[in-house]
Design a binder for these strands. Structure first.
Length: 315
DNA sequence: AGTGGCTCCTGGCGGC
DNA sequence: TGCCGCCAGGAGCCAC
């Protein structure tokens, strides 16, 4: 599932082909993809040149310039610059010049010179927004600091952890605390930090907080270096899979031996999310939170054998 | 305010 | 073989 490293991989790929292109038209095939209508999106996006691509947490941000040739190029409802935001959620794929003969993408940006940016998304959780750049601050107002930014210091993390009774796993998934961490990288970072996912966030000491921050950064950076994890259906805009899934330590390795100590990797449910850990490398300590109900039929065997979803789904 | 649980959505898979 | 129900999860929403 696209988390920070996957979205960053998409951003870097699109950076090589999108900037400078003009959005000629917008086609919305699935109204659920945006609260805005196709006409609204067209008015906000069409005629504008793509100026840049940024990322905030798991959100991809596309900066578009004012409509060229518009009176004065002045900002305003008439044709000013636009900020577009895309969230891939579970299965979203942004494909540049996608192969045809697929099911219709949820939306398409027709670009000039003639190319397409298509949004394919089997589970239909992904979303698109477009708004005046002045609205961006409010849009991201409740989102926590970027892990690689200066604001994500040990001091910040300690303050954020302080007093929290929620399990560490839930803390890491809370986008208001840290931006961009999802289920895969949360499990992997906790393993790297040797912290049990059910530890109460507030029970984490200063040395452990330092370890957790370093583990998060190392894990996310490794994900970026491997161009993402193609566990579910992630592919970059050229249809290429990432390779981080090949070096996962615990995520979806239930029943397999820990790569460090050989103990069997376990699975439990924390905050409704499948959670994978090594009971030896991530020992229980004081300040544990009670786990959620045990998963039915645990231990759940890994759901291996699924083909990459880069292949076209059935028509 | 913090926390947990439910919901959306679909394809894949296990069970019968 | 075919059908049914469960499962995955990011984030918004709601209840406590």
């Amino acid at each position: 599932m696209p988390e920070l490293p996957e979205v960053e991989t998409v951003r870097r790929r699109l950076l090589t082909c999108l900037p400078g292109l003009v959005v000629r038209d917008v086609v919305v095939n699935d109204p659920l993809v945006s609260a805005q209508s196709e006409a609204e999106l067209r008015a906000l996006l069409a005629g504008r040149r793509i100026a840049g691509l940024r990322r905030r947490g798991k959100y991809l941000i596309v900066d578009l310039g004012a409509v060229e040739g518009a009176p004065g190029g002045a900002p305003g409802p008439g044709g000013g610059p636009t900020t577009a935001v895309i969230h891939l959620r579970m299965t979203g794929q942004l494909l540049f010049r996608p192969a045809p003969a697929d099911r219709p993408p949820r939306f398409i940006w027709r670009l000039d010179p003639r190319t397409d940016l298509a949004f394919r998304d089997v589970r239909r959780f992904g979303r698109l927004w477009a708004f005046d750049p002045s609205a961006e601050h409010e849009f991201f107002a409740r989102m926590g600091p970027e892990p690689f930014g200066d604001a994500f210091s040990v001091a910040y993390l300690r303050r954020a952890l302080e007093g929290r009774r929620a399990p560490l796993k839930s803390f890491l998934l809370d986008q208001r605390r840290i931006a961009g961490v999802g289920n895969i990288y949360a499990d992997e970072a906790l393993f790297r930090a040797r912290l049990h996912p059910l530890r109460a966030a507030g029970s984490v000491g200063s040395r452990e907080a330092r370890r957790l921050r370093e583990a998060l950064l190392e894990t996310l950076q490794a994900g970026i270096d491997h161009e993402g994890s193609s566990v579910e259906s992630f592919v970059d805009p050229a249809g290429q899979r990432g390779s981080f899934q090949e070096i996962l330590s615990v995520y979806q390795r239930t029943g397999e031996p820990c790569r460090v100590c050989g103990e069997t990797v376990r699975r439990l449910e924390v905050g409704g999310r499948g959670t994978h850990y090594c009971p030896v490398c991530q020992p229980r300590r004081g300040g544990m939170v009670r786990g959620s109900r045990r998963l039915r039929g645990s231990p759940v065997p890994p759901r291996g054998g699924k083909p990459p979803d880069g292949a076209p789904p059935r028509g």
